[in-house]
């Protein structure tokens, strides 16, 4: 199996606003030399709390931002050096699901319009048929495409967002806190849906969350991040059974019922 995603020692720094006229502002290292590879059809879970750099990492994988150091290679190609036109076409192969099901769909566009957007942007044909197919894959009906986002519940909206992400049949799906805003019972439905789609479509997935037990139920490998640095990484079963780092232990304990 070949690596679909190869992240090599990426760092990202932000300069904060200066506090005095004479000195330049402090520098925040949001992501500090993070590396991993992801095989086709597999899932990597990235776990960390606020300020861990996990969302910045997601933005670099999605090529919304370029790393200051290191490189993100998707299917053998370095994303941030690709010409803009080529990158836009390549985008159909890696898609993203966002955290907030209320904010990730344009309120003024129908569901079908939003799902079709990645197809239109990359000049695909048979748009209508593929939108219906995507709706079906996420457990919605073709008629739902004519409705607007506000007519759906949070869980259904997240299904719509997933439909938009898979409509181009990507090889990689990046999910940033994709179930965090959902109720527990709906969360389980969406996690199962992601597992179904992964098996059906052979998707590779980067699943990012603050919630280690959630990550553990669908990731093959887990990377634990804190303050921009990787603190522990390994196969899920081993990491859950015998976490080495104290921080990992505390994340694991937080999700359990016993003090």
């Amino acid at each position: 199996m070949s690596a679909i995603l190869d992240v090599r020692a990426v760092s990202r720094r932000y300069s904060l606003p200066r506090r005095s006229l004479l000195r330049s502002g402090p520098v925040l290292t949001a992501v500090d030399r993070v590396s991993f590879t992801l095989e086709r059809g597999r899932t990597l879970g990235i776990v960390g709390e606020s300020g861990s750099g996990k969302s910045t990492l997601a933005r670099m994988i999605m090529a919304f931002e370029a790393p200051d150091e290191g490189e993100v290679r998707f299917d053998g190609r370095t994303l941030h050096t690709l010409p803009a036109g080529e990158l836009r076409l390549l985008r159909r192969s890696f898609q993203m699901v966002f955290q907030d099901p209320w904010g990730s769909l344009d309120p003024r566009r129908t569901v079908a319009w939003s799902i079709a957007e990645p197809l239109r942007a990359t000049g695909a044909d048979q748009v209508g048929r593929r939108v219906d197919e995507a709706l079906d894959q996420v457990g919605l009906r073709a008629e739902d495409g004519r409705k607007y986002p506000h007519e759906f519940s949070g869980g259904q909206r997240q299904r719509i967002a997933i439909a938009r992400a898979i409509v181009t049949r990507p090889a990689l799906l990046v999910a940033d806190e994709a179930v965090s805003a959902l109720d527990v019972s709906v969360q389980a439905q969406i996690l199962n849906l992601l597992m179904d789609l992964q098996e059906e479509l052979g998707l590779a997935m980067v699943f990012i969350s603050h919630d280690l037990p959630v990550v553990a139920c669908l990731a093959d490998h887990v990377l634990v991040m804190r303050a921009g640095r990787p603190v522990e990484a390994g196969a899920t079963a081993g990491l859950i059974a015998a976490p080495r780092d104290d921080y990992t232990k505390s994340l694991l304990a937080a999700g359990g019922l016993m003090p």
Binding site: F64, L89, F94, G103, D106, E117, R164
Partner: peptide, 25 residues
Amino acid sequence: RDYVAAARAAGQGRFAISRDHILPN
């Protein structure tokens, strides 16, 4: 907004996003 990020992830350019998402909103 996330739906603009989603449009970028979809491969939409700045002007298409301005026309499709920004102007109506």
